[in-house]
Simulated assay, not measured.
Amino acid sequence: MNALPRRRPNPLSCLAGSLLLTAMVSSAAQAAPSQQLIDAAKQEGMLTTIALPHSWCGYGEVIAGFEKKYGIKVNELNPNAGSGDELQAIKANKGNTGPQAPDVIDVGLSFGPVAKQDGLLQPYKVSTWDSIPDDAKDAEGYWYGDYYGVLAMGVNRDIYPESPQSFADLNASEYTNGVALAGDPRTGNSVMMTVYAAGIANGGKAGADALNAGIAYFKQLKDKGILVPVNGTAQNIAQGTTPIYFDWDYNLLAMRDKLDGNPPIDVVVPSDAVVAGVYVQGISAYAPHPNAAKLWMEYLYSDEGQLGWLKGYCHPIRFNDMVERDVVPQALLDRLPPAENYRKAIFPTLKAQSEAKTAVADNWAREMGVQ
Rank of each mutant, 00 (worst) to 15 (best):
L4G: 12
P5K: 07
N10E: 13
S13Y: 01
A29Q: 06
P33G: 11
S34E: 10
Q35C: 02
L37F: 06
K42C: 04
Q43W: 03
Q43S: 14
E44T: 11
L52N: 15
L52Y: 04
P53E: 06
W56Y: 15
W56A: 10
C57K: 04
G58H: 09
Y59F: 14
I72E: 01
V74E: 08
N80M: 10
G82K: 08
S83R: 14
D85S: 15
L87V: 12
G95Q: 15
N96H: 07
A101F: 09
V104N: 12
L109N: 01
L109P: 00
P113M: 03
L121N: 08
L121V: 13
P123R: 04
D130Y: 12
P133M: 05
D134L: 14
G145V: 08
G145D: 12
D146I: 13
V150N: 06
L151N: 11
Y160T: 09
P161S: 11
Q165I: 05
N171A: 13
A172N: 15
E174G: 03
E174C: 02
Y175H: 11
T176H: 10
G178N: 04
V179P: 04
A182K: 10
G183P: 10
G183I: 06
G183N: 06
T187E: 13
G188Y: 14
N189G: 13
A198Q: 01
I200T: 11
A201Y: 11
G203H: 12
K205H: 06
A206C: 02
D223E: 15
A238W: 05
T242C: 07
P243S: 09
D257H: 07
K258T: 14
P263E: 11
P264G: 08
I265L: 09
P270W: 02
A276F: 00
A276I: 01
A276C: 05
G277N: 14
G277T: 12
Q281V: 03
P288E: 05
P290A: 09
A293G: 09
E298Q: 12
Y299Q: 05
Y301H: 15
E304C: 11
L310S: 01
L310Y: 02
K311R: 14
Y313S: 00
F319K: 09
E324G: 03
R325F: 04
P329C: 01
P329H: 02
A331C: 02
A339L: 12
E340G: 02
Y342D: 08
K344Y: 06
I346N: 00
T349W: 10
L350E: 13
L350I: 14
K351W: 02
A365K: 15
E367R: 11
E367C: 03
G369M: 13
G369V: 10
V370P: 07
Q371F: 03
Q371D: 09
